[in-house]
């Protein structure tokens, strides 16, 4: 068995102290392996967004141990000072409403990540175009987000998430704004990305229609992670 790309041990998050303390996550243990598409499910307030934020190094955990792509990044404290750099290097994000920059073309939206990572202009243009071609939206390279359909915009967002070759993809309700057909296409793309790039894809979702496209489902209830459900 290979090492998991994401390993969480005893990860916890609470807000407040004493009588006002709220435990958003309680001692979460989780392993996510390369090539798998994992769903995080649960009712509102169950802690799934908090868990996504912890894995994404957006929120400070209250305790625990976290390894991302072979590097211990949290062990009671962050072991990296620059968490944005950590995100840039290791994690790709996909959002519910794609969050493309309205003032950039589709290709520039992909390039922006490469620019932040310090890629030279010619190479990042080439890389961005190849990703758009891979996701079958190469002909939309010059289009602004406002000129794209919801499905096309989400593909551009996936291309952006993949731009810097991260091995961890975190997707927050990526199909919530799409109809069944487009949602299925996006999920198939994420499965393809996981398989082709050897990435671990974590999807927070409420969307029943994509359950059959998840390899593992983790359910959360009041901050407690339930036993995983293998789907295949």
């Amino acid at each position: 068995m290979t090492h998991p790309l994401i390993r969480l041990r005893g990860m916890a998050k609470h807000y407040g102290e004493g009588a006002t303390r709220v435990d958003a996550l309680r001692a979460v243990d989780m392993d996510i392996h390369a090539g798998s598409v994992v769903g995080l499910l649960g009712p509102s307030g169950s802690g799934k967004s908090t868990l996504l934020n912890l894995i994404g190094a957006i929120t400070d955990p209250s305790g625990g141990h976290m390894i991302l792509d072979g590097e211990t990044v949290y062990d009671g404290r962050w072991l990296r000072r620059d968490l944005r750099r950590l995100r840039l290097e290791k994690i790709g994000f996909i959002f519910q409403f794609h969050n493309l920059m309205p003032f950039l073309s589709a290709r520039e939206n992909v390039e922006v990540v490469l620019d932040l990572a310090g890629w030279p202009a010619a190479k990042r243009r080439e890389r961005a175009q190849s990703l758009l071609d891979y996701l079958q939206v190469g002909d939309k390279a010059q289009a602004k987000p406002a000129q794209l359909s919801g499905g096309q915009a989400q593909r551009i967002a996936i291309a952006r998430a993949l731009a810097n070759n991260p091995r961890i993809i975190l997707a927050d309700e990526p199909t919530a704004a799409l109809d069944s057909e487009r949602a299925a296409i996006v999920m198939d793309l994420l499965r393809k990305v996981a398989a082709d790039q050897g990435a671990a894809v974590v999807v927070v979702t409420h969307d029943d229609k994509i359950m059959n496209r998840l390899d593992v489902i983790h359910r959360l209830r009041e901050g407690v992670l339930q036993s995983p459900e293998e789907r295949t």
Partner: peptide
């Protein structure tokens, strides 16, 4: 605001 939050999330440093 949303674009700035997204930029920060995908790794843009403060100077950007």
């Amino acid at each position: 605001m949303r674009e700035i939050a997204t930029l920060k999330l995908i790794g843009a440093p403060d100077r950007t």
